[in-house]
Design a protein around this nucleic acid. Sequence first.
DNA 1: TTTTCTATTGTGAACGTTAACATTTGGTGT
DNA 2: ACACCAAATGTTAACGTTCACAATAGAAAA
Lengths: 340, 340
Amino acid sequence: MTDNQKRRQPVMMDVAKLAGVSHQTVSRVLRDSPHVRESTRERVLAAINQLNYRPNSMAKALVTGRSRTLGVVSFDTVLFGPASTLFGIERAAHDEGYAVSISSLRSLNRETVLAAIEQLRDQGVDGVAVIAPLQDSVDTLGDLKADFAVVAVAVEAGQDASIPVVAVDHQAGAISATRHLLDLGHKTVWHLAGPRDWKESDERIKGWQAQLESAGATVPALFRGDWTPRSGYELGERILQIPDLTAVFVANDQMALGLLRKLHEAGRKVPHDLSVVGFDDIPESAYFTPPLTTVRQDFAELGRRCLHTLLRRIEGEPVPPQAVVAPELVVRDSTAAPQK
Amino acid sequence: MTDNQKRRQPVMMDVAKLAGVSHQTVSRVLRDSPHVRESTRERVLAAINQLNYRPNSMAKALVTGRSRTLGVVSFDTVLFGPASTLFGIERAAHDEGYAVSISSLRSLNRETVLAAIEQLRDQGVDGVAVIAPLQDSVDTLGDLKADFAVVAVAVEAGQDASIPVVAVDHQAGAISATRHLLDLGHKTVWHLAGPRDWKESDERIKGWQAQLESAGATVPALFRGDWTPRSGYELGERILQIPDLTAVFVANDQMALGLLRKLHEAGRKVPHDLSVVGFDDIPESAYFTPPLTTVRQDFAELGRRCLHTLLRRIEGEPVPPQAVVAPELVVRDSTAAPQK
DNA sequence: TTTTCTATTGTGAACGTTAACATTTGGTGT
DNA sequence: ACACCAAATGTTAACGTTCACAATAGAAAA
């Protein structure tokens, strides 16, 4: 308002002039270099304050080659797992002073995942976390050039393991769910699985099978759903036909909800006639009819692990090829001992 | 691998040399300037391909002052509304060639919102969309300097309207929900509201009240929840005490779920004894017991509107102070005519 | 005092683009 | 052939930092 003809944002040089030092000294203060006298530091800090100077992160990024920004490839969905993972990563990143850019895909496949990573990279991110639950997308990541830091939030590494993977141990979750049912006295446990191309589905199936086999129970045929309540509801129709069926492990809570609905309509009492276990522990699960026994995943921890792995890759430090977060069984009212 | 001693990323100059032109011509090709001969353009394009050259967005941003990145301030939650809004914006932004950086707050208040905006700004975004459902945060935005493009996804503009607002018309949604119940023959409609400091809560209350009054129905006292199923469940206890209560409009689907659960436990049949309407249409709603009548919001459209408003602000064009997206009533099985 | 350090500060050149202006080219009209 | 104009291309200087040195100061050692 006074006599400054140009109203542009102040830059480092402006601060330097006001403080009576060189721009380099200002830069040193900003990055707390040890070689600055206390009195000068204060003078510079005062000037920064007075001008309300904000460093230009683009210029900094240009010269350092680091943007302190991370990319996350996710997809266009509010599915509980992926969304929670995204927030978990974002939170951990912010705590470490990193910004997060997202790219949410409408469809997940080789091309879209690769394109998203490239785009994020062009945009200047230092590294990318890919929330890639699909079998296909995990394989895709193997093709990636090793000159860029990428971490997958998935289930298990591809064959080559060129990309580190951070994951929830779905298999362990499925095992504890199945064991819980078996311990209750059920002869065997049926399974409503997730869609075919999802790694998550496969791992949950594996855990379920493994536990059944190690308990000497027969392994029944499984049913395929697609994560939606609708598919759980429709599969419920077929569940109802099966005689002697007393326990079902469902691959996620939403499908379990659909199943519960169908059973209710058919007059089957849960858990009296039949026990149901879900997976995810979405916030609604505790209020289903009946409250659902399910497997909870720790997304905050997952995000933290993912982030730290990514940061190490960015720094070029060696990283363990795989980090695993253990899920936890939450017992509520949808499971009970079978009727004699 | 051959004789290139330096393995750095190719830059514009490398392309220029290979194509036998100046870097400026390469720049012109990249920005499809009209003043390039077709044959040179092809030569340059070929060189770009051969070297697999990718423009450095930081350098570009530094000189243009535009990063083609937008910021979104949201919060650390997978609450359906905010999460969907975020994805809606992200999707629209990507379609326009903008990247999006997110900043998810753990708590929403004056300081955190302002800090997040500043941080995003320092990070170099061209503009910010704030998903600010809290009364407080909307007011906060009024204090913002006008020299930076900010759009709020909220309910209504603050007093000064210095910040454009894009919103779902919650009031209209509440009106249609209430009217639906009244049309069914209910004498009046009770309301389980959202938390006190949320704009959304207020607007839904207003709509409910307005519709009741215009229909000449008495306006009962309202109950306060906090969006969680738990609060709906607990409020259900009090709902049960009220004689002659036949219809409830609940401020969101999760609370409605909790209420449904409580009613079920108490042996009250929905919709036979009592009708319930929710708000949001979360994917689970159709499979509640019973399937929930609710109000659906169009988040994709919301995101699009928000984005376009933001882009206009960035370009310095005038923008309407308020844009509104109409919600839609979805009738399912939780509502019926009252018992005589 | 003079020398020799070391802590502090300054200088100039990157970083990889775009903007502004200057120059060359090739085609027209005379 | 000449001047002239527009189209096509090139040159130089930003943008706002950090980096690699160079230079200066002040203090300790001789």
